[in-house]
């Protein structure tokens, strides 16, 4: 304890002490004011978010319906968003198919193997560098690499690969965090039992880290769903044709299952409608689409929390 505090404790109680403890009148006022201001920031942010959610809830009222979600754009006067929603989900799955394994494996390296050396710091630097590169630059990189030089044209695959570039650092970092959160004793116990390092990782560390890993997957997925600038230059912008879901020929660009076709996602569709949209209900369609996009983000976020919590509880209980 420092001297003034000791003095304060030692002195008999009186008006002087309360002054010393609470500070001067001015500093009390300043403290009160600061508290009010800081509370104000919290309230302001909540108010902004609340009004945005309310805005879209009201705007989407009367637009979003089962037919809006499940129909083709040309099917009704209002039009549906099924093909673009399909493309968003398709792109999400395709991206995650690449990003999740690579990201988790990379996370394992960073958490379990990486030493303090130049290679590790190069990887860390790359990780930070990609996550700070503007998404439009990643999109342009995809444009030159896949669309132009490889002559693929605008394809879902080009978009998914560009999105993977964009999201790999996040996936790797979240995986690394999840793996590092596993207590060191678990590893030593397994190693003490004679398991190899890889066996330990495989059978002890990764299973224990699953809640965190799943949270990472869901958070990354949420970002894929909303991204537009990357896809603008790689996956194409347009109103998708009528999809025939019975066509499973993956090499046929007409099949909605094929990665070798242009795929306009919901986010890109919003951008397209804003810039080149036609029709009396253009604004309503954008409002409805934006509401669905926000709803998906909410679902991903709450889902990540819920599943993470559920799995943690179940695994720790077992």
């Amino acid at each position: 304890m420092t001297a003034p505090a000791n003095q304060a404790l030692a002195r008999p109680s009186g008006p002087k002490q309360s002054l010393r403890r609470k500070g001067s009148r001015g500093s009390i006022l300043a403290d009160r004011a600061a508290t009010v201001v800081l509370w104000g920031t919290g309230v302001l942010v909540l108010a902004i978010l609340g009004s945005i959610l309310l805005h879209f809830a009201l705007a989407a009222w009367g637009v979003v319906s089962p037919s809006f979600i499940l129909d083709d754009p040309s099917s009704t006067a209002l039009g549906g968003i099924m093909p673009v929603l399909w493309n968003s989900i398709y792109m999400l799955v395709l991206t995650m198919l690449i990003a999740v394994p690579v990201g988790i494996l990379g996370g394992i390296y960073m958490a379990e193997y990486a030493g303090e050396n130049a290679v590790t710091s190069a990887i860390r630097f790359a990780e930070e560098a990609i996550s700070s590169v503007p998404s439009i630059v990643v999109g342009l990189f995809g444009l030159i690499l896949f669309v132009d030089d490889a002559h693929w044209g605008f394809t879902a695959l080009a978009g998914a690969l560009a999105l993977t570039f964009f999201n790999l650092p996040l996936m790797t970092r979240l995986s690394e965090q999840a793996l590092r959160a596993v207590p060191q004793e678990e590893r030593s116990a397994s190693l003490a039992l004679g398991a190899t390092k890889w066996q330990t990782i495989q059978h002890v560390v990764v299973p224990l880290a699953i809640p965190g890993l799943i949270t990472g997957v869901i958070l990354t997925a949420g970002r894929v769903f909303g991204e537009a600038a990357v896809l603008l230059f790689t996956a194409g912008v347009g109103t998708p044709p009528h999809y025939n879901f019975a066509n499973f020929d993956l090499l046929n660009p007409a099949s909605p299952w094929s990665p070798f076709r242009p795929a306009t996602t919901l986010s890109v569709y919003i951008y397209k409608l804003n810039s080149e949209g036609l029709g009396a209900f253009k604004n309503q369609i954008v409002d409805g689409s934006a509401a669905i996009l926000i709803a998906m983000v909410l679902i991903f976020n709450l889902g990540a929390r819920f599943i993470g919590r559920l799995l943690t509880r179940r695994l720790t209980a077992a």
Partner: peptide, 22 residues
């Protein structure tokens, strides 16, 4: 028959057809 229509601007259209991408 499936004709997929994408935009991107006149420059994109010329670049892409010239490159054989569309």
């Amino acid at each position: 028959a499936t004709v997929t229509v994408t935009g991107g601007g006149s420059g994109t259209g010329l670049s892409q057809v010239d490159a054989g991408s569309v």
